[in-house]
Amino acid sequence: MELSDRDLALVSAIGDGLPLVERPYLAIGEAVGMSEVEVIARIQAMKEAGIIRRFGIIVRHHELGFRANAMSVWDIPDDKVSEIGRRLGDSPEVTLCYRRPRRLPDWPYNLFCMVHGRDRPGVEQAITDLIQRHGLDGHGHAVLFSTRRFKQTGARYGRRKAAE
């Protein structure tokens, strides 16, 4: 599915979320020059095309008591990383799982998993379980707990706003 300029305007308009009004799609449509019907149809089409992976209420883990999160990273041989990544990505403890490039010598890891939990011991236990279950013992590994959140908002794909 190719995104038109109108789609991109819509993507930008919903970047901050739907307004909390009785007819939010109508309000979004007024902002981008689409009818309510068209807004709904375009969002539906982007969902079906997999461009929108999820459409719904997006919660903030931290405020809901999931105060610990760690980025757990591994150095997995390139010919095995996709298979291991798929298995880790299917694990209930894992909320995101990506392959990214190594940047030697600073950064030797190519597989990234996010693990959220109510507290640090819970997250540590979950990572220990993942390592055992998936036989990851022999691979280079690091766990980067987050100690401070400076910013968390929705992604903005719209036109660039000037940075202050």
Binding site: V21, M46, I57
Partner: peptide, 26 residues
């Protein structure tokens, strides 16, 4: 609407919106 507004003000709700597939939009 009132409850969602309250949960947003409290910070429990980030937004009602979309998670986009990486790299398909921008």
């Amino acid at each position: 609407i009132g409850r969602l507004a309250h949960l947003s003000d409290q910070g429990s709700v980030s937004r009602v919106g979309a998670v986009f597939r990486p790299h398909t939009v921008g």
